[in-house]
Design a protein around this nucleic acid. Structure first.
Length: 240
DNA sequence: GCGACAG
DNA sequence: ATCTTGTCGC
């Protein structure tokens, strides 16, 4: 069976506007998240991200597979499908995962770890898009977000790799605020599935090169948002 | 009731 | 996320 079969839940049916049902499903799935390092040698890693076309009518998901050792891109895939649901804070995964799963399937090979753009368990109900993706695929995942959705933290240092815990109201450790590079806003890292809170930021730093984002999500982001096209395309009708 | 609010 | 050019600072 393909990755997106056998799931007749709300995430893949038509969006009926029932946010309450979606939140209930999140709470049930959050119980299945494994917050322990449960993965073998990392040979293949992947990054996934989503962008939109035509004012939001089309959801465009990108998946990039890379060699965990050399960080060389080995394969990439795009999935473009009609957007089914609006953006609702806290319910992002229901809007983006259908396309993400298609892109992952198109990759042909499943990675040993997936980095997703967005939060893992650092979410109001413990199931951000990275955690949702991890539970659904059964694969290890890590959430790499650019902004906090929920939680607080102490002041963060200025140097590369400096980090502080992200705590929910109640003081529970739910993620890490990480300065991936000097002079850039920190990333918010949280486990998605089968990765511990301590290990998640380590793995992110392992794949950060000279940019703010680690290679997996940086490359997926470029594909999803068409950064490459916009950069490579020469302006026609301008040279006259 | 008021403010916050991933992408 | 996306709409959008040049511009200021490291």
């Amino acid at each position: 069976m393909t990755t997106h079969e056998n799931r007749s839940d709300i995430a893949f049916g038509e969006w009926d506007g029932n946010t309450a049902a979606a939140r209930e499903l999140q709470m049930r799935l959050a119980e299945k998240v494994v917050l322990a390092d449960d993965f073998g040698a990392l040979k293949l890693i992947a990054g996934v991200d989503v962008g939109f076309e035509d004012g939001g009518k089309i959801t465009r998901a990108a998946a990039v597979l890379l060699d965990a050792e050399t960080l060389e891109p080995l394969a990439q895939a795009l999935a473009r499908i009609p957007t089914r649901m609006p953006y609702i804070p806290g319910l992002l995964s229901f809007r983006e995962l259908p396309a993400v799963l298609q892109a992952l399937d198109a990759l042909g090979q499943m990675p040993d770890l997936i980095f997703a753009d967005g939060h893992g368990i650092a979410h109001p109900r413990g199931l951000g898009i990275a955690a949702h993706l991890g539970v659904i695929t059964g694969l290890p995942t890590i959430g790499v977000a650019k902004k906090i959705l929920t939680g607080q933290h102490a002041p963060l240092g200025e140097r590369r790799a400096d980090q502080v815990d992200l705590l929910d109201k109640g003081g529970k450790f739910i993620g890490t605020v990480l300065r991936s590079k000097e002079k850039v806003r920190p990333l918010i890292i949280s486990p998605g599935n089968r990765v511990s809170l301590m290990t998640a930021p380590e793995l992110v730093m392992r794949f950060v090169t000279r940019y703010r984002l680690p290679e997996p999500t940086r490359l997926a982001d470029r594909l999803a948002s068409r950064r490459d096209e916009k950069r490579a395309v020469v302006q026609p009708a301008l040279d006259r």
